[in-house]
Write a protein that binds this DNA or RNA. Structure first.
Lengths: 144, 144
DNA sequence: GTATCTGCAAATTTTTTGCCAGTAG
DNA sequence: CTACTGGCAAAAAATTTGCAGATAC
C-alpha cells in the first residue's frame, strides 16, 4: 500500500514534469518523495539531508535545482519564514499554516478561505488573484 | 523643520526604543522614517539606498542592525517572499499583501478577515490565534 | 543521438559579526 | 563616565551558476 500510493505519486510526478518539459530522474523522484512525506516544512538543507538517505550521492545544488523545478510545476510550495531561510511544502491540498510565535514551529491547519472573500471585488479591482497563503500566528498547545 | 508629524512618530519611536532598552539615534530614526513612509515592502538593501539620501554616511550593516532592532520592538514587520530576500513593512494597521507572481512586486490591500474565520473553532482547537498574515498571489494590472 | 540533468567547485548574494572609535544619557 | 551604537571590513550563510560527463527518451 505504501508502494501503491508512492508509485501513484511517482506517476503523477512524471506526468506533471513531462507536461512542463522536464524529465523524471531518480533525484527528482527522491526529492519529491521526501517532501510529500513530511509536514515539517523543511529548508533546502533539511531536504538535502533527508534525501541523502535515499540517494546518498545527491548534491546540494541538485536539491536546489530540483526544488525549484518542483515549485515551477506546482508540485511543491516555497515558503519563507523570518528565520531567513526558504522552506518547502509538498502538500498541495488547501491548508493554512499556524506558526507559534514562542517556539517557532509551524503546523498545518486544514481548510480554505471562501472564494469570494479571497477574490473579493472591493480591494483588488486591478489584481487577478490566483491563489493565497494564510499564516496564522499565535501560541501552540505547548506554549499557551 | 517639517517635523510636526514626523516628530510625533519620532517621539513614539524614542519611547518604544527606550522601553526596550535601546537608544534613539539619528540612523535609527532615519530607518524608521523611511520604512513608515513607504508601502513598497523594501528589502534591507532598498532601505539602505533610501536611507542614504537622509543619512549619506550610514552603512548597510547598521541598517541591518537597526531593522532588527525595530522588529524586536514591534515597530516594523519582517516579511519574506519567495524571491529569497527578506522585506520589511513599517505599517502596523491591518492589511494584506498582493504579490504578482510575474513581476514580483508586492502591494498592500486594505481590509481584514472576519474574526470568526481566522480564529475558527473547527481547525485550531489547540492553537491560540493572535494574528495572521494573508498573502494573495496572482497577476498585477501590468502583468495580467 | 540529443537535449536535459547531475555533481562538483567556484561565484554571488544576503546577512551577521568583531572591533574600535564615537555618542547618548 | 559607561554602556550602547555606528562604520568598516571580514566572515558566515544561503543560493546560484558554469561546465564536463552521465542519463532519459
Amino acid at each position: 500500500m505504501s508502494q501503491v500510493s508512492s508509485s501513484v505519486s511517482a506517476d503523477r510526478l512524471r506526468e506533471t514534469l513531462e507536461a512542463h518539459g522536464h524529465r523524471f530522474t531518480e533525484q527528482r523522484g527522491a526529492v519529491y518523495r521526501f517532501l510529500s512525506g513530511t509536514d515539517t516544512h523543511p529548508t533546502a538543507e533539511d531536504v538535502f539531508n533527508g534525501v541523502r538517505e535515499l540517494v546518498p550521492a545527491i548534491s546540494l545544488a541538485t536539491v536546489y535545482k530540483n526544488l525549484e523545478t518542483l515549485v515551477g510545476c506546482g508540485m511543491a510550495l516555497k515558503l519563507t519564514y523570518s528565520d531567513g531561510s526558504a522552506r518547502y511544502d509538498g502538500r498541495t491540498d488547501p491548508h493554512h499554516h499556524a506558526r507559534c510565535t514562542h517556539c517557532g514551529t509551524v503546523r498545518d491547519v486544514p481548510g480554505s478561505l471562501p472564494r469570494d472573500l479571497v477574490a473579493g471585488p472591493d480591494a483588488c479591482a486591478d489584481f487577478h488573484v490566483t491563489g493565497y497563503r494564510l499564516e496564522l500566528t499565535g501560541y501552540c498547545a505547548d506554549c499557551a
